[in-house]
Every structure is written in structure tokens, then in C-alpha cells.
Simulated assay, not measured.
Amino acid sequence: MSESAEFEPEVLTALNAGRKIDAIKALRSLRGIGLNEAKELVDRYVDENAPEGGPVQKVDSNFSVAKLLFVGLIIYLVYMFFKS
């Protein structure tokens, strides 16, 4: 089945961002297919296109949020230091 090679841009964007579940949801809504079929297509695409069995692209968004909170805390502490 060559459908997996012709994914919609929304599906590819989600996969490249490491959001496999979002890719499956997008594929289901765009094509009107079932969960099993969408999951199989996404899994097959990832298996065929992942470099040496690894993820297509892994994104750790929790780390970015932690960095943002840390920077915000530092800015707040500096502000409070110079305010007094």
C-alpha cells in the first residue's frame, strides 16, 4: 500500500515533531479511517523512514518548558534584587 508514502502535510509535521499520536489523529480525521488503520500506516511510515530503527525525530518539549521556567525564575529574582 503506497498510501503511507503520501501523507498529508499535517501528518508529516506531527511525525517530524515526534508527536506520533497527533499524527494518527490527524490521519484519521483527514482520511476518515479507523484507529487501527491509521496506526498501522503511521507505524509503517516510521519503520520505513526512521534512521537505523530510531525515531524519525525526537523532540523533548518538557525540557524546553523547564528551561523557560528556570529563565523566568532567574529574571524574577534579579528583578526583586534590584527593586529593593
Score class of each variant (00 low, 15 high):
I33T: 06
V11P: 02
R19C: 12
V56R: 01
I24E: 02
L12A: 07
A23Y: 01
F7L: 15
D47H: 11
Y79V: 04
D22L: 09
V78Y: 03
R44E: 14
V59P: 02
R19V: 08
K20F: 02
G34M: 09
K20T: 06
I33M: 11
E52I: 15
N62I: 05
S2T: 11
F7E: 05
D47C: 07
V59H: 10
K67I: 08
I24R: 03
E3I: 12
Y45M: 08
L41D: 03
I74V: 12
D22R: 00
E3V: 13
G18E: 00
N49G: 05
L12Q: 05
I33F: 15
A14Q: 04
R31N: 07
R28Y: 01
D60L: 11
G72N: 15
S29W: 03
N36E: 14
Q57A: 05
L77V: 09
I33L: 14
S2L: 12
D47R: 14
Y79T: 13
I24G: 00
E8D: 15
R28K: 15
E40F: 01
S29E: 13
A14R: 00
K83D: 07
I74P: 01
V46D: 00
L15S: 01
K25R: 09
A23L: 13
N62H: 07
E37T: 14
L41S: 11
G72W: 08
Y76F: 14
F7A: 02
F7Q: 01
V71Y: 04
V56Q: 02
K58G: 06
L68P: 01
L30F: 12
P55H: 10
S84F: 03
G34C: 08
I74W: 00
A5H: 11
Q57N: 15
E6K: 10
Y79L: 15
E6F: 14
E6N: 12
P51F: 06
E48H: 02
A17L: 12
G54I: 06
F82P: 04
F70Y: 09
E40H: 02
S4P: 04
G32I: 10
A66E: 08
V46W: 03
A5E: 13
N49H: 14
D22C: 05
G32D: 08
F70M: 07
R31W: 09
E37S: 14
S84Y: 05
G34E: 06
F70I: 06
F7C: 05
R28F: 01
L30G: 02
T13F: 10
L77D: 08
A50T: 08
A26K: 04
L27K: 06
G72D: 12
M1C: 10
L77F: 14
R19F: 14
I75Q: 04
E10D: 08
S4A: 13
K39M: 13
E3P: 06
V11Q: 00
V42N: 04
R31C: 08
P55V: 10
Y76D: 07
